[in-house]
Design a protein around this nucleic acid. Structure first.
Length: 568
RNA sequence: CGGGCUGUAGCGCAGCUUGGCAGCGCACCUGCUUUGGGAGCAGGGGGUCGCCGGUUCGAAUCCGGCCAGCCCGACCA
């Protein structure tokens, strides 16, 4: 490609609205342009990178037996009504009607339609199957941000496995785990595989692939000692224990005028230290007021509640409904003597005695509360958010917590979709059984952004060869006939060797050409200029680390081509 | 959805307080010079000032409404 004819609209200044490095550099480098919130056009450079990522994903999916499909983006609402998701994922789904008044939607994912196709399978002999496609998804996220990291419209590789039994699903899941590991290694990412919440997907097990990054939106807890890693939406830990002072008497009321917070109550003395309080949260779960109890110094992780209770329908209670139910406002709530409402208790409260909690009367609290004696526990459920420094639940070493970008997610789905949509086969004994499914996703654009987050410096992007929009740029730094001819010769030499080369033949000053080449991150630059040309030499610069090397002009194409091929 | 902020040329911004010819830098076009790290000089083109309405002799500027975008939080396969 000739730079003079290419559409590579680089910007000298950072765009004002870009914060994340990937957002800033992809816009500045002329890879993407925003159309609206959470929606980007891929320009030629961006498209080339995305195509490289897609090719790697395809190759690795095919290597584990995947068959490529292409399913529609507009789906009939009727199919989604059959699985219940027309209603349950209401908020992020764009719904509309066609001219006949038929309910339609923009696909947020493709379980329904792949499962519909899988309904044509009829025998265990046809299984296992592994189907995938690379297709646009549209999710009307409430807050798109950070360029390609969180968007509403995006391309995703989603695959779906179909098996007759759990062992088959386990194999497909493991195959994906291995394939994803290879995909990310090839694109220059080093994600951690973490235990994740399955969310509204349902299913028994899910693993996220997370690339540690300050630009990430998820928090993951990691144990350096034993390798345990979990999304904080699901991760467990061992909190520092708290010593209880002995107390065998009944709970005792004491006045706490104006006290509405854990911190304010602590001021009453050592006996009311945060770790010795019981925090009482009032949620409305499926329309019913539910008390959730934690240690005072612990935070609730709502996703754990959602997963543990098996419902999406959870919200904090409104002050007036809480007062009507319990007789007090948040800040003075407690579960002692409460019946008629489910009481969910975090296991960190197990065995605790002589604790402090609200008395369900404003300005009053109770002390001397022994959890199992005084509170009618309906269910023990880990709902506590893990904090950095707490003990790993597997080995006890301190956990680290940091931000990460989710670049892939794999789920064991089970039979939710196959049952709803009638995808059944006959097994070896002739019994009809629902197909056991898994689903597996990788966001292409997000992966591109994650690569930039992991591979950039002050001058711009530093693409790994495997996903670079071009592998080599030939920079001609003078317009005289001799230099131009020599640069063209090197460029031809690269093309003949099958290298994806770009020749910077623009009438620009050298500084502009160098800065642009580094901004867009081409892995190798061959500079041809009169100075070294007089000695029969060219300069080769590797973008990574910006190290330069002189070599004979006639060897440059061959030597750089060999280096490129070695890194593909 | 709550809080904060911003919409003026392709990009980055000033002008708005105190109403009176719509500006600056970069980019773009022409010419000359220059040519190994974002050149110099000269000339030139380009803007419904987010949209609608109001006040006023006169609105980028004041008032009202709306729209869009960004950041934080909530939310989020």
């Amino acid at each position: 490609m000739r730079w003079s004819q290419a559409f590579i609209p680089t910007l000298r200044q950072d765009p004002a609205d870009a914060e994340a490095a990937s957002h800033r550099l992809l816009v500045r480098g002329g890879f993407i342009r925003q159309l609206m919130s959470g929606s980007y056009s891929l320009l030629p450079l961006g498209r080339r990178v995305a195509a490289k990522v897609e090719a790697i994903v395809r190759a690795e999916m095919n290597a584990i037996g995947g068959q490529e499909f292409l399913l529609p983006v507009v789906h009939p609402g009727e199919v989604w009504k059959r699985t219940g998701r027309w209603d349950t994922v209401d908020e992020i789904m764009v719904k509309f009607r066609d001219r006949r008044g038929v309910d339609l939607l923009l696909a947020i994912t493709h379980e329904e339609i792949f499962t519909l196709l899988a309904a044509e399978l009829s025998s265990y002999r046809q299984l296992p199957q592994l189907w995938y496609h690379l297709q646009t998804k549209f999710r009307d996220e409430p807050r798109p941000k950070a360029g390609l990291l969180r968007v509403r419209e995006f391309t995703m590789k989603d695959s779906y496995s179909f098996d007759v039994d759990q062992a088959g699903l386990d194999r497909q899941f493991d195959n994906h785990y291995a394939a994803y590991t290879r995909i990310f290694r090839r694109t220059g990412l080093e994600p951690l595989a973490v235990q994740a919440s399955s969310g509204v997907m349902g299913g028994s097990e899910s693993v996220e692939f997370m690339v540690p990054s300050e630009a990430g939106e998820d928090l993951i807890a990691v144990c350096r000692s034993c390798g345990y890693a979990g999304n904080v939406e699901r991760a467990a830990s061992v909190p520092a224990p708290v010593e209880d002072a002995p107390w065998d008497g009944p709970p005792e009321r004491f006045p706490t005028p104006g006290v509405r917070t854990i911190a304010a109550l602590e001021a009453h003395g050592d006996f009311a230290a945060a770790g010795r309080q019981i925090k009482t949260m009032a949620y409305v779960v499926d329309g019913r007021l539910t008390l959730v109890l934690l240690r005072g110094d612990h935070e609730v992780m709502e996703q754990k509640l959602i997963d543990g209770l098996g419902t999406q329908n959870i919200r904090p209670g409104h002050p007036d409904e809480i007062r009507e139910a319990l007789g007090a406002l948040p800040g003075s709530l407690g579960a002692v003597g409460v019946t008629g409402f489910p009481v969910i208790v975090d296991p960190a409260l197990r065995g605790r005695r002589n604790m402090v909690t609200g008395a369900n009367q404003d300005d009053w609290h109770l002390r001397g509360v022994t959890v199992e004696r005084d509170i009618a526990v309906d269910r023990w459920l880990d709902v506590r958010r893990v904090e950095a420094g707490e003990g790993c639940s597997a080995c006890g070493a301190p956990l680290e917590v940091f931000k990460a970008i989710e670049v892939g997610h794999i789920f064991k789905l089970g039979t939710k979709y196959s049952e709803a949509l009638g995808a059944r086969v006959l097994d070896e004994e002739g019994r009809e059984c629902p197909i056991i499914m898994g689903s597996y996703g990788i966001g292409v654009g997000r992966q591109v952004a994650a690569v930039v987050e992991a591979h950039h410096d002050e001058a711009g992007i530093v693409w790994p060869v495997s996903v670079a929009p071009f592998e080599v740029v030939v920079t001609s730094v003078a317009a005289d006939a001799g230099t131009t001819a020599a640069a063209e010769e090197v460029y031809r030499g690269l093309l003949e060797r099958g290298i994806e080369a770009l020749i910077d033949d623009r009438e620009e000053r050298p500084g502009v050409k160098f800065a642009d080449a580094e901004l867009i991150g081409i892995p190798f630059r061959i500079t041809v200029g009169p100075r070294r040309l007089a000695e029969g030499k060219a300069e080769v610069m590797r973008r990574q680390g910006r190290v330069t090397e002189e070599m004979a002009l006639e060897e440059a194409a061959a030597r750089v081509a060999a280096a490129v091929i070695a890194e593909r």
